[in-house]
Computed example of a mutant assay.
Amino acid sequence: MSSGGRRTEIVVDDAGVRRELADGSQESVSWDDLRRVGIRTIPDGPWDEDVFFLLEGENGTGCAVPSGHPSANALMSKLQVLPGFDNDVFVEAMTTTDDALFICWQRT
């Protein structure tokens, strides 16, 4: 969540999701441009972050949110109301220790 003492800032609001990276650059995706939601799991837990929400938008936009970040609860509230969000895939992703990518939602 931090690098060099600097905390990663992630904002989840009605416009979308924005993440300021440690180097000062930003990732972002608006809800209108959101095309796919994935969960990336890596076998680095339990001491290192091992689950990330991957939000993919149009034209290469997107944002990665670590599941352990305080913004993850607000993000989940927004994601679970997307029409067709697959909660079964979400549960599977959150309970695996495999190196995998789970797709929970895609715009049709």
Score class of each variant (00 low, 15 high):
Met1Ala: 08
Ser2Tyr: 09
Ser3Trp: 12
Gly4Val: 06
Gly5Val: 02
Gly5Asp: 08
Arg6Asn: 13
Arg6Tyr: 13
Thr8Asn: 06
Glu9Gln: 11
Glu9Pro: 00
Glu9Val: 07
Ile10Asp: 00
Val11Tyr: 00
Val11Phe: 00
Val12Tyr: 10
Asp13Leu: 06
Asp14Tyr: 00
Gly16Ile: 05
Gly16Met: 05
Val17Asp: 00
Val17Gln: 02
Arg18Tyr: 01
Arg18Asp: 01
Arg19Ile: 04
Leu21Thr: 06
Leu21Gln: 15
Asp23Phe: 06
Gly24Ser: 09
Ser25Phe: 07
Ser25Cys: 02
Glu27His: 07
Ser28Met: 08
Val29Phe: 02
Val29Ala: 02
Ser30Tyr: 01
Ser30Asn: 03
Ser30Trp: 01
Trp31Pro: 06
Leu34Trp: 10
Arg35Glu: 15
Arg35Phe: 03
Arg36Gly: 09
Val37Gln: 04
Val37Arg: 02
Val37Ala: 04
Gly38Gln: 11
Gly38Met: 03
Arg40Thr: 05
Thr41Arg: 14
Thr41Ile: 09
Ile42His: 05
Ile42Gln: 11
Ile42Arg: 14
Ile42Glu: 09
Asp44Ala: 15
Asp44Thr: 13
Asp44Glu: 12
Gly45Lys: 03
Pro46Tyr: 08
Trp47Phe: 13
Trp47Leu: 14
Trp47Asn: 12
Asp50Asn: 11
Asp50Gln: 07
Phe52Ala: 13
Phe53Gln: 05
Phe53Val: 04
Phe53Trp: 11
Leu55Ala: 10
Leu55Gln: 10
Glu56His: 09
Glu56Pro: 03
Glu56Lys: 07
Gly57Cys: 08
Asn59His: 05
Asn59Trp: 00
Gly60Tyr: 01
Thr61Ile: 03
Gly62Thr: 03
Cys63Asn: 04
Cys63Gln: 05
Cys63Met: 08
Ala64Leu: 02
Ala64Thr: 04
Pro66Asp: 10
Pro66Arg: 09
Pro70Glu: 15
Pro70Tyr: 12
Ser71Pro: 01
Ala72Val: 03
Ala72Leu: 03
Ala72His: 11
Ala74Met: 07
Ala74Gln: 09
Ser77Phe: 04
Lys78Met: 14
Val81Lys: 14
Leu82Thr: 03
Gly84Asp: 09
Phe85Asp: 13
Phe85Val: 12
Phe85Trp: 06
Asp86Gly: 11
Asp88Val: 01
Asp88Gln: 10
Val89Ser: 04
Phe90Asp: 04
Thr96Trp: 14
Thr97Phe: 10
Thr97His: 13
Thr97Ser: 12
Asp98Pro: 01
Asp98Thr: 04
Asp99Arg: 10
Ala100Trp: 02
Ala100Ile: 00
Leu101Trp: 15
Phe102Met: 05
Ile103Gly: 01
Cys104Ile: 02
Cys104Asp: 05
Cys104His: 06
Trp105His: 06
Trp105Pro: 01
Trp105Thr: 05
Trp105Glu: 05
Gln106Tyr: 05
Gln106Asp: 13
Gln106Arg: 14
